[in-house]
Design a protein around this nucleic acid. Structure first.
Lengths: 193, 193
DNA sequence: AATGCATATGAATATAAATTCATTTAAAGT
DNA sequence: ACTTTAAATGAATTTATATTCATATGCATT
């Protein structure tokens, strides 16, 4: 069972397609096998069981997602620009991999087997946001009286909401175009001044 | 099969408890029956099948939720106060019925069988927000240059994010206390001025 | 108390799909 | 060409649980 064989990846991507189309529970091993172009039994040479396929899928996708987010943020100076890049990168990656977007938005929260994995992902993201917000406060560009625990959920919740709508709309419009207007809302709010 | 018998309600609430604890797919009819204090077969006198239990659960809960939201908003004048009441009411109702909160946040988006039902719920909520935002613009208290399609998702996404955190934290703190700080973020944003 | 009707029971059935494994195919080494 | 090892197959097995249904219980009417 070598980790990075062609078949390993084919099964992962095949599973991604089937999970996105039918949801984890309605997806069958046979369908995944067919999508990946292998026999049912072959899957068990590479994965412990059905749950493990999803686990590895998430693991694989998040690792690469986090790396990209980190470099997008590090590529620039100042909290506001870092925040913009974070959101731009987030939306771009989800737009580029719609199966992943569907699985993360619709399946992941739901499945208890992977609850811990999800907690880690959220935590990573929220800690990242904290870092940026605190930087902005040090720079003097963000309010000092922010309840950071609330702000970071506010930020992540809103991006996810935007992505959910895009997914529900079958990806018919450009998701990345939402990034800057969204950040403007975070920063300035909706009240007239 | 009379609709509002004791057993009908007992099964619905029992199902709510089991769905919240184990998730829809891992929940078995036997467990729901036990929780409701009836025999397995009895459930089929009141519901077509397992999916129908969830469908009716959601229908029942949203109807009552929407009524409460509507009167909370109608009870006051001015967009800002209406928005505050909307969010307060939303958080209060979810805090008061944690099973419902779990099912709505974790299960509902996921289940394809009820996708239409969910679209209706979202639409109802988003239209409601549009109404309030447009009122605020007419009053001159909200910015004129808002992209409403984005703003309403921004608002709903953030509330849902707050609720998700609360659910994940096993409801250990007071959710309703988040309402006003959250609305302040919507209105004023995080940028220092 | 006997009859009929509605409601409830839970063991038996049916079904679907995850997982296994005996067999086949391909590849590598000598 | 022959042997050994590894990888792949897919039909057969196992398991789990949603759903059915023959039977029972309770309740009202006469």
């Amino acid at each position: 069972m070598k980790e990075k064989s062609e078949k390993y990846s084919a099964i992962l991507e095949g599973a991604g397609a089937v999970f996105a189309r039918l949801g984890f529970h309605k997806a069958t091993i046979s369908q995944i096998a067919q999508e990946a172009g292998v026999a049912d039994g072959t899957i068990y040479l590479y994965f412990k069981n059905k749950d493990d396929i999803l686990y590895q899928y998430i693991q694989f996708k998040t690792t690469s997602f986090f790396e990209k987010m980190r470099s997008a943020v590090d590529a620039t100076e100042g909290a506001e620009e870092k925040l913009r890049n974070l959101i731009r990168c987030h939306l771009k990656e989800f737009q580029n991999d719609r199966n992943m977007a569907i699985i993360f938005q619709s399946e992941v929260r739901y499945l208890r087997n992977i609850a811990l994995q999800v907690k880690d992902i959220s935590k990573w993201y929220l800690d990242f946001l904290t870092e940026i917000i605190e930087l902005g406060q040090m720079e003097g560009h963000l309010r000092q009286d922010l309840f950071i625990g609330l702000v970071k959920r506010f930020v992540l919740g809103a991006v996810e909401g935007i992505i959910n709508t895009w997914v529900a709309a079958e990806g018919k419009y450009d998701l990345t175009a939402m990034a800057d207007p969204l950040v403007d809302l975070y920063l300035g709010g909706i009240r007239k001044r």
